[in-house]
Amino acid sequence: MTDQTELSQVTDTKIVKMIVFAIGVQEYCIPILSVREIRGFEKTTTLPFAPPYVCGAINLRGIILTVIDLAIYLNVPPQADNPRRVVVIVESKNGIVCGLLVDRVIDMADIDLNDVQAVSEESSCLGGLVLVDERMIGILRLETVVGQLVGDTVSE
């Protein structure tokens, strides 16, 4: 199912370490175990017929992967001139590797899954909201994002 439920089974205590990043003014987080590395944003190669939120392809030590502009994906105005923009390289459970372009990485947080408030249906990319230090943080459902990346086809 979702990241959270599975991880909770592994850890027993329902606390999951998440990496928190910002897209525009809103903060989001994903489980830190799905993150492979974080690197600076570099020029991508444009891919034909790609959905608008796909920036293009980059070369990660010989592997070719696509970078998703999360701002466009989440319908937030992108900050093209922001020097703190980084690419979070993530790997989904079925082994698909892709990069998430975020405006800035904030910190890590231990999130108790019992505190997560569901906000939408299963298939949405937002898994829920959680309150950390008085800030509302959205939990990004990685599998949905990656699933769309692999499955979405924009016809000619």
Binding site: T45, A57, L149
Partner: peptide, 27 residues
């Protein structure tokens, strides 16, 4: 030749990708 489909999907008109001398990806 590097696969592009392993982490993405099939693209019309593109069979695969490669990495050029400057490290950039080329289709």
């Amino acid at each position: 030749i590097k696969s592009i489909e392993s982490n993405y999907r099939q693209i019309f008109g593109v069979s695969a990708a490669t990495i050029l001398g400057d490290g950039s990806v080329s289709l």
